[in-house]
Every structure is written in C-alpha cells, then in structure tokens.
Amino acid sequence: MAHLRPRSWGEALALRAAHPEAVPVSGGTDLMVRMNLAGHRPAALLDLSAVPGLAEWSDRSAWIRVGPAMTYTAMVRDLAEHAPALARASRGVGSPQIRNRGTIGGNLGTASPAGDCHPALLATRATIEVESVRGERLLPAREFYLGPRRSMLAPDELIKGVLIPKATAPQEFAKVGARNAMVIAVGSFALALHADEQRVGTGIGSAAPTPVIAGAAERYLDAELADGDYWEKRRPLPDVVHRRFAELVVTAADPIDDIRSTAAYRRHALGVLAYRALRWCWTDFLKGWR
C-alpha cells in the first residue's frame, strides 16, 4: 500500500499510468466512507491534493473553467454569477464539513445518479476535460454518464477540469430530500435558460440509473418559446406551458422504489420541481435578469 502524492499534473498523469491499482483521491468524502466502513482497501491512493492549481477556476470569456478540486464551499462563494445552478446545487450538498472537502471532480469521479453537480452540468451543457498520458479528451456532460457509478472516464485518465458556458439567463436547481441538510436527494432538477442561443437545458438527478436530461421537455419548451416569440417579447408564460413541461420532464425519469422513496413519489416530486424551476426562471427572466 502506498500513498502517492504527485506535486504536478504531469507527475499525476504519469503515476496514474504507472499504478493502475492506485485510486485517485481528492476530498475523500466519497472514498473514505467506503474505506472506513465497507472495508474497501485499495492497494494505493493517488492523492491529488498536492497538485497546484486544481482547486481554482478561471474566466474564459464565454465560458468558465472549473478545476476538479474546487470544493462546494468555493463554488458557493465564487460561481453564483456565471454558474448559478451549480452554485445553488453546491449550497445544498451535505453539511459545511462536507462542502469544505467535497469537490466537483470527486462528484464526477463517483458519477452517482444522486450526485448534485450532474443536473447542473447537464442543463448548462458543460464539457468535461479528461487527460491521460495518451492525451486529452473533451467529453460533453450529456455523454459522460454511462450507468450507475460508470462514466466515460478511462482507467488511466484523470478529470482535469469542467468547462461551463457562462449563464446568459436565469438557472435553477432544486432537490427534494427528507430534511435540509445531509440527505441524499430523492429527486433533483436543474433548468438553465440559454438566452443567447434561445434554448433551454435540463438535468435530472436521482430518478434513473444515471443523471439524465429531459429531451422531450427541452424540445417542447424550445418550440413554445420560439413560436410565441417569448424570448424577444419577454412575455409571461402561460400556466399550461409550465404544466406540460413538467409532465414531459417526468416522462424522462425512470425511478425506483427504495428505502428513501417510492418511485411514484419520485415522479410526483420531480414534476413539482420542474414546474417550479420553470416558474422561477421565467419570472426572473421577465424581471430583466441582466
């Protein structure tokens, strides 16, 4: 057993290639739970916490680039302007202690259907940068999640960053759980209005084997908004559009009965979240968001 602690990104990639048995660790809030209790004993850890710069974000004109080790606490503090749905999602993660350590890279590494970053990354059409000694790949968030805790990340790759288009109109994220703190979501939903492209984006968590988008709901709302010239005229959106949108969001889910909730309740909750997210976003848009 070894604790590998690279001091540079290049060294991290080299160690990843040379030690396939070593499990990467960033904030440890997912991995350590498994190691402490489940007796999960990886042969080695590849500790990314000493690689400089991974916790930072930068402004790339139309985009922001978020480093994989950026914590929820930092995303709440810094990303409310350019990535409001992600900042909102970060605010609801775990507890202050978990937000101080848990990272976006770790959330992607685990790729749990309940991970709170995913709906926001889907709704904003983010891109995930991954790299190995073989080279770099840019993976659309919408293609990243393959199955429960399975993603496009190859065994020799590391998550290098997340590229998120800057918000040009309101975004929302909401989740339902048993209480405010420390719950795994029963259902979550993110909505992003992309005013510049005049289209919307959605993301659903905890309602299928992977985080998913609500494609039919997106197409429906895009068409309604275009037909009624709502983007230009900034008119109130009829209630029936909200309700149809919510219904279509629910059809994208494939929830299960489990200890936290029944599938029927998950569907119901998701419909309510989708309805409200659209109402909140559109109301803010009419108020002249930026």
Partner: peptide, 29 residues
Amino acid sequence: CEQGECGSCTVRMDGRAVCACLVPAGQAE
C-alpha cells in the same frame, strides 16, 4: 460514525472545519 454524518470528529484543517474521519491520513502531510 466514520461516515461524515455526525460531525463529532470535526477539526480545523488549514482553517476549514472538516470531518477528520474522511481525511486520508497521508493527505494531512
């Protein structure tokens, strides 16, 4: 709990409040 759920292990690490049970010991170097 050693699961990050109870906070009874909370310490400050470089100023931040963290659950010590979730910090790999080698990361505290």
